[in-house]
């Protein structure tokens, strides 16, 4: 190894994976609470889960899966030299992120207009287990939404670097890592969706 100029792709990817582990463990805390409270309040979780709309959740699942596909393909595209295609795919990913967030906005505002939000009077009348469910729902989807936004920003940053040719067919590890981050956002949602939206319909 000869010092300064060399760029360690495996090292960079490995570092990113380590970071993703920390993200998994971060959400892990919420999943842990979900598991514990589900064991304690199974009936309440089912009755509260019915309040969530499968179509919102399912639609968003499709959107995220598709966006993940775009990102995955964009890396292959970049490495094959198809820069324009790559940029278009990444742009579509950001559009997907926007659709996801708009969707989420409508979903949340519907809930909030029904008086279901942390600390609301309506919540206070619910069963304890249902309160826990909705509090967890808001925290988990909120934290996930934050990650969607961050992921979109990271992808946008990668796009800028690709435009400037700082990231290109020979030097694409930044895009790879941005993609890894985006896939993580998708991964979390893959678990959030069934746990919150599909708990016995």
């Amino acid at each position: 190894m000869s010092g300064h100029v060399h760029k360690d792709y495996t090292g960079a990817k490995f570092g990113m994976w380590l970071f993703l582990f920390t993200e998994v463990l971060l959400f892990g805390g919420l999943f842990l609470l979900y598991a514990v409270y589900l064991a304690r309040y199974p009936q309440e979780f089912i009755s509260a889960g019915k309040e969530l709309n499968v179509w919102f959740g399912g639609g968003n699942t499709m959107v995220l899966l598709t966006s993940s596909l775009f990102v995955a393909i964009s890396i292959t595209a970049l490495r094959r030299g198809a820069k324009t295609l790559c940029l278009r795919l990444l742009g579509s990913t950001i559009v997907c992120a926007a659709i996801f967030m708009v969707n989420k906005y409508f979903e949340w505002s519907a809930k909030i207009s029904h008086g279901i939000y942390p600390g609301s009077d309506h919540m206070k009348e619910m069963q304890p287990g249902e309160m826990v469910f909705f509090n967890l729902y808001y925290l988990t989807t909120g934290l996930h939404g934050l990650h969607v936004i961050i992921g979109a920003l990271v992808i946008a940053w990668a796009m800028i670097l690709i435009k400037k040719d700082r990231v290109n067919a020979d030097d694409w590890v930044i895009l790879e890592n941005a993609g890894l981050y985006w896939h993580l956002v998708d991964l979390i949602w893959i678990f959030v969706f069934p746990l919150y939206y599909l708990i016995l319909h």
């Binding site: 993940s68 596909l69 896939h183 998708d186 991964l187 893959i190 969706f193 069934p194 746990l195 599909l198």
Partner: peptide, 17 residues
């Protein structure tokens, strides 16, 4: 539900990632 989610995440990790 968890089983299917695990399968899905396995696909994402193995191929997309």
């Amino acid at each position: 539900a968890l089983g299917i989610a695990t399968l899905k995440s396995g696909l994402v990790i193995a191929f997309f990632m």
